[in-house]
Amino acid sequence: MQKISRETLIEKAKELLQNGTVSSVLGWKAGEFSYDVTPATFNSVEELEKDFVYNDFCGANFSKYLVKATIKAEGKILVFLKPCDTYSFNQLLTEHRFNREKVYVVGIPCEGMVDVEAIRKAAGEGIVSVECTNDGLVVDTLYNGKVKLAEQDVLLERCKVCKSKKHVAYDELLGDEGEVIESKRFDEVERLEKMTPDERFAFWQRELSRCIRCNACRDICPACTCEQCVFNNPKSGVENKAAANSFEEKMFHIIRAFHVVGRCTDCGECSRVCPQNIPLHLLNRKFIKDIDNFYGEYQAGAEVGSRAPLVNYTTDDIEASDAVRKGDGENA
């Protein structure tokens, strides 16, 4: 359960709306079910009081929404950012994707957000409602009645291995600035690296073959803000699902991940939104791990204006063939 309540956020938003600091608020409102919270814009106190929600399902990273929202909005936009969202925020600023002047950031603490898919797995299909309490979740289901779950067990993957509770961008904080924390986020990548190539191939074949090319992972990605995406080109040959074979999936996934190399902040949105539960973060994290390994540690979005590893070089960088060997720990 989040430490900060819906009321506190509404209070803050009200104050900023009423004193004229901002003219609209980017927040969450209830969807059809209590667990499908949807991002929304609020223009008045009345709208806030009526629809604004904040709970453990507010995983959405608002940074990318600012790209379009700042163009449309007349005045400043109030946005609530969790620590991980602030990295994407900085990365977008680094890439000049929106005007910082038009945004007012209120940093909010985060206890980790929950994953409805994980709840579904644990409690069964037919979720009627989910109640977040101080000692866990109470899930009301059609078939299994009320099921109690520990929050730790149903966190989003990215929250289980949260890399930072630090707000790297804000105008105001509700809570502490927070710290970068120890994270085990590369463990799974290492496990894959230790497999044989055949096993790895089989693993990815199994995962990627489920992809339905809905493009949700690209659309949600704060690094994917291209106005013309390569995958929208009808001549690219990768614009729809190939029934014939698996090349298209691999092409899509390798290129998608490659396009965000050095810019991906590991916010985990791709894996959160994938309707097929493909562990896309494992592709992005491989690149992050390799960058750390080959060129020194680099966290995209940690500061505005930092130079991404692929638009940078040193004269004694590792050669590609050595990199492949180092990449799987052979002579690391």
Binding site: R200, A202, F258, D290, F294, E319, A323, V324, D328
Partner: peptide
């Protein structure tokens, strides 16, 4: 270096 390492990762 990064692309080839990724190809290797995909088997």
């Amino acid at each position: 270096a990064l692309l080839f390492s990724m190809l290797d990762y995909l088997g």
